[in-house]
Amino acid sequence: MSARPHRSAWSSGALLADFRQDCKAAALEFVGTTFFLLLGLGGIQAGAQEALVNSSNLNEQVRVLYISTCMGLSLLISAWLFYRVTGGLFNPNVGLALLLVGVIKPVRFMLFSIAQLAGGIAASALILALTPGPLSVGTFLGTGINSAQGVFIEMFITSALVVAVLMLAAEKHAAAPFAPVGIGLTLFACHLWAVFYTGAAMNTARSFGPAAVTGFTYRKHWVYWVGPFLGSLLGAAFYILLKYMKYQELNPAQASTKPEDSPSTPGGE
């Protein structure tokens, strides 16, 4: 009897071994992405229209805080709801980082990316259909910000989000079930910096949805593909560096829940 030929991990059979499960997960990832962006972008749309209807002149700091809260809380809630279902990625740039470090496989990454982009379109279309007035949730570079600055701002904030996902969710530890809280707060903090300058996308699906619904009228939309893509690479590279440095050994008791790992009584025996 002849030996069974060895299958490479990249062979078509190996890649499609979990195809049915991947399709199910992608369908639910579409629902999760739509839910996340419907809440987050819906809040931004409501804020923009409230300001227009009431002719209010909110200062820029209040506007930035409002947008940051909408997106940060939306991700926290949505990721927590879908955490045990699909992982709650809602972001092809997070998916790319997970692919690079080996958490998900290529087929799931591709299906998830399609689902997330479609979710961005669905959420934006629903907001446009359910609210009066023009869609006011697109991402644009701020006054005085050139394309290179926009790319690098998006790169750095995306890398921060990627590192948060990898360290809080992909890495297993006592606080892993609460990862959505830290990830949502990371999104909130990144928005506080970047909303005024780039709109703080850090997620190509978040920018792609409104752009697709409004007809891609913004010439620099490519910034929101290049910047987050580079952020995925940077965040994944930093995580891989931490793994090679065996970061767990640098402060080994930090995640401990054992009372004996607590500091001893000062001056005691």
Rank of each mutant, 00 (worst) to 15 (best):
A255Q: 12
G150A: 09
A194G: 04
I157M: 06
T131Q: 13
L166S: 08
Q45S: 07
Q149I: 09
I127R: 07
F140A: 14
G209V: 07
C190P: 00
P263Y: 09
Q61I: 04
G42V: 02
W193K: 05
T217W: 13
L15G: 04
P134V: 11
F90E: 06
V213P: 01
F156W: 01
Y197F: 12
F30M: 12
I157D: 01
F82G: 05
T257L: 15
Y244H: 15
L58C: 05
E50K: 09
Q45L: 03
Q149K: 11
A123C: 03
E260N: 08
Y224A: 01
P252C: 04
W80G: 10
W80K: 10
R108Q: 00
L100I: 13
L16M: 12
L37Y: 06
P180F: 08
L242V: 01
G142E: 12
G72H: 01
V103G: 02
A46G: 06
T131D: 12
G235I: 01
F238N: 07
G95E: 02
G95A: 03
S124P: 02
A236D: 01
A115F: 11
L99G: 00
S74Y: 00
V62Y: 13
N54Q: 15
A255V: 09
A48Q: 12
G182T: 00
L117A: 06
W193Q: 12
S256C: 02
I183C: 03
L233E: 09
E249F: 07
G47V: 02
P259M: 13
V165W: 02
E154L: 08
N54A: 15
L242E: 00
V163S: 02
E269I: 15
G215M: 14
A205N: 00
L185Y: 01
T139R: 05
Q149V: 10
P210E: 10
A123P: 03
L98W: 06
I77V: 07
F30T: 11
G150F: 11
L185Q: 02
I77F: 02
L130D: 05
V163P: 00
G231C: 02
V64F: 08
M202W: 11
L250C: 09
L135A: 13
K105M: 05
R4Q: 11
V165C: 02
S256K: 05
R84V: 14
M71H: 09
V94R: 07
G142P: 13
P180R: 07
L233H: 04
S2T: 14
G184S: 08
F90W: 04
A164I: 03
E249R: 09
M167E: 06
H6P: 06
T143N: 15
Q21W: 07
G268C: 08
L38Y: 11
F112S: 10
A179Q: 01
R63I: 10
H191W: 06
S124M: 05
P134M: 14
V213M: 10
A3S: 11
P177H: 05
Y66C: 07
R20N: 12
T34Y: 10
G95W: 00
G227K: 01
A255L: 13
A169Q: 12
A236V: 05
T257V: 15
K105Q: 09
A115R: 13
T214E: 15
F196W: 14
P210I: 15
A123L: 03
M110C: 04
A17P: 04
S136I: 15
H221R: 01
L130T: 07
